[in-house]
């Protein structure tokens, strides 16, 4: 406990998740999240990002998924294959990629549904002020149904309901999905502010690497269920392959034909 700021909060070791008893979705992912960091987990579609987050936040019976091997440790405690509500009470709260708000409940009701870690009833009002402080828009749409919100408002509401749970570690799945660049910037900055003011650690899963690396302290690249590259944002940003495939700013952009890209993709290799 000498340097609590850099203490490892969450560590994943050789995680393997199996769906429906047969198909393996994540093959031996290992990474760690340190206290007070914003960590970005980057990768393309189907790389295993969402599965990793779901494994951390817990599976339900309906998911028919299981962590078959490896370790998920949160503050030194093994938490794999525990039900989601247990994990939420431990302080890990997920903002899922879709179905992130209750569509038939109003904004106010959505906020009341979350089970707060902080027990006292008196803190209810504080929470509301806190949420309105970060997301003033939600105050104006308090009576609207969750299903009628715009994409940005919906994401804000999802973040808010997660915050009401009082997380130590916030897992955010695809913050930028379906949102315009301005609102993405705004939300990313808000996450940074919330991290600083609320002492929350954030694990961010993103396809939009550029936006995520803006605020991240550390990043991992996940591909085909494996971590292939890791480093701080500068290192990631300067890596040729990441520039090419995640940031869309390869150097030979102009002279490249589609065929070259395909070839390059096949020979892409990762070195750490």
């Amino acid at each position: 406990m000498a340097k609590p700021k850099n203490e490892t909060l969450l560590s994943i070791e050789k995680l393997e998740v199996v769906y429906h008893n047969v198909s393996t979705a994540v093959l031996g992912v290992s990474f760690e999240v340190r206290n007070h960091q914003i960590v970005a987990l980057l990768g393309i579609n189907g790389a295993g990002k969402t599965t990793t987050l779901r494994a951390i936040s817990g599976f339900l019976g309906v998911d028919d998924a299981k962590v078959t091997e490896g370790l998920i440790q949160f503050r030194g405690e093994k938490i794999q294959n525990k039900p989601p509500h247990f994990i939420t009470k431990k302080g890990i709260v997920l903002v899922p990629e879709r179905d992130k708000v209750f569509e038939n409940l109003t904004v106010e009701e959505n906020l009341q549904v979350s089970v707060s870690l902080r027990k006292s009833r008196a803190s209810g009002q504080d929470f509301k002020d806190l949420i309105l402080h970060y997301f003033p828009v939600l105050g104006k749409v308090g009576n609207h149904l969750g299903g009628y919100l715009s994409g940005g408002e919906r994401q804000m509401l999802a973040l808010s309901t997660a915050l009401v749970c009082g997380p130590r570690l916030l897992l955010v799945d695809e913050l930028s999905l379906g949102l315009g660049p301005i609102i993405v910037d705004e939300l990313m900055n808000l996450i940074k502010v919330i991290r600083d003011e609320q002492q929350v650690t954030v694990l961010l899963v993103e396809q939009n690497a550029l936006a995520a690396l803006e605020i991240a302290d550390y990043g991992y690249v996940i591909e085909n269920g494996r971590i292939v590259f890791a480093g701080d944002p500068d290192r990631l940003r300067n890596h040729e392959d990441i520039k090419e495939f995640y940031l869309g700013q390869g150097e030979r952009e102009s002279q490249k034909s589609y065929r070259d890209i395909k070839q390059y993709r096949r020979t892409r290799r990762w070195y750490g």
Binding site: L60, P84, T88, P96, V101, F102, E103, S114
Partner: peptide
């Protein structure tokens, strides 16, 4: 409405 999300909200 959404058991998974409800569970994730504690």
């Amino acid at each position: 409405e959404n058991p998974i999300l409800a569970s994730q909200r504690g």
